[in-house]
């Protein structure tokens, strides 16, 4: 298993992601956005940050960069892809995931820990993710929205990966920090091989830094390491 960590101008979680994945004992390397190939990689991590300064819309320009054509092809073939924070925005803008991410309900940039309730067993990423996890968020535009039909499909097809909840796992309006539709914190594509989420598993890999629940969220990478 070797993981491609994409780098756009303005990515700022790329080093955390690379270091985090390597700390799990999994090989990883950066791939610059102007590259057109993912040859030699078996998973893709689209990191957070402010790609292209969030110009136009968050993730809009990055989603149309050369490497994203390769990511689309890779995902179509069933390859595992995870996008975190700005990476989630990029995957939505690229049309690899449904819906979009808007300015938080209360306009504030939110930088705090959240509880997540895993809600899906679908695909590569969710296997074994079977308990509440505590991970950080850091975003201004994380309010997940989609049309009613898409929302019904996501709920009906088990494609809501995570919902914001309280420490007891209750999905409440209060725990829904950014005002996302149905408290959605992460979604999956139809096959479940593409996961997008606002919270940062790569920032929760070490108890010294406040928690290690991110290890569970990225455990799929370790499982198929061989």
């Amino acid at each position: 298993m070797k993981v491609a960590v994409l780098q756009f101008p303005g990515s700022n979680c790329d080093q955390d992601a690379l270091h985090g994945i390597q700390s799990l004992g999994v090989a990883a390397d950066y791939v610059w956005h102007q590259e057109a190939s993912l040859a030699g990689f078996e998973a893709v991590f689209v990191p957070g940050g402010f790609s292209y300064g969030d110009y136009l819309r968050c993730g809009a320009i990055a989603a149309r960069s050369p490497i994203m054509a390769a990511v689309a092809e890779f995902a179509e073939a069933g390859g595992p892809v995870i996008g975190v924070c700005n990476g989630f925005q990029v995957l939505c803008e690229a049309g690899l995931l449904p819906g979009g991410l808007l300015l938080n309900r209360d306009q504030k940039f939110l930088c705090q820990g959240v509880w997540l309730k895993p809600e899906s067993r679908l695909g590569f990423w969710m296997e074994g993710v079977d308990r509440l996890v505590r991970v950080p968020i850091a975003h201004g535009e994380g309010r997940y929205v989609c049309d009613a039909e898409t929302l019904a499909r996501l709920n009906g097809e088990g494609r809501v990966a995570f919902r914001y909840c309280d420490a007891e796992g209750r999905v409440t309006e209060e725990a829904n920090v950014n005002g996302s539709m149905d408290s959605i914190a992460g979604v999956l594509n139809e096959k479940g091989n593409v996961l997008g989420m606002m919270p940062h598993p790569e920032r929760a890999l070490d108890d010294l830094l406040g928690g290690s629940d991110g290890r569970l969220l990225l455990s799929a990478l370790v499982r198929v390491r061989a």
């Binding site: 136009l56 809009a60 149309r64 939505c92 803008e93 449904p98 979009g100 929205v145």
Partner: peptide, 9 residues
């Protein structure tokens, strides 16, 4: 359609 607006939102 392709860049200036995101028809999803």
């Amino acid at each position: 359609d392709r860049l200036l607006a995101n028809p999803v939102i």
